[in-house]
Amino acid sequence: MLCQSCKERTATIHLTEISGGQRSEMHICEQCAQEQGIVVKNQIPINELLSTLLSAQAEGQTGGAGTAGIDPSEELSCPVCGMTLKKFSKTRLLGCPNDYIAFDEPLRSLIERSQGGHSRHCGKTPSRAPSAMKNHMEMMNLRRQLEEAVKAEDYETAARIRDQMQQKL
């Protein structure tokens, strides 16, 4: 691809800008980028990625699996651990494995950009097939319920939950 600016050299820098919900792309060569004062960073720090993620979120680009039944004006949150994108951007840490599903779309772009454009695991896999994420989610919920039942000294419920958990293990 030729540089859009000088139309001579090969474009090696590809910029995607999102402003006011409008997406625009620019393809230029390194020399033109320097002349135009565009700083090129190979590794984008995660906090920078997170703030872009949040501003995109503020523009109402909510979507993804976790939003079913939720008012789109409400902030996206994980039904399992209650994590929100806002909280994630502050701590840089996710709350539970289900966040990868709940924040599917915004997280995907963040992962691609912080992982050198990659979005698929090509490495080692556990020797035994892991149970479905659904099972893990249920276990997380049961563990919480168990804790609450013990706290409330409702041992009958606690025993029932424990039996349920044992069946799943």
Binding site: I46, G123, T125, P130
Partner: peptide
């Protein structure tokens, strides 16, 4: 049993370690 996803691999608290 580790938290593992066929697409993303080993799931980590920070996405910079995922895979």
């Amino acid at each position: 049993e580790y938290a593992f996803d066929p697409e993303y691999g080993y799931l980590t608290a920070c996405p910079t370690n995922v895979g």
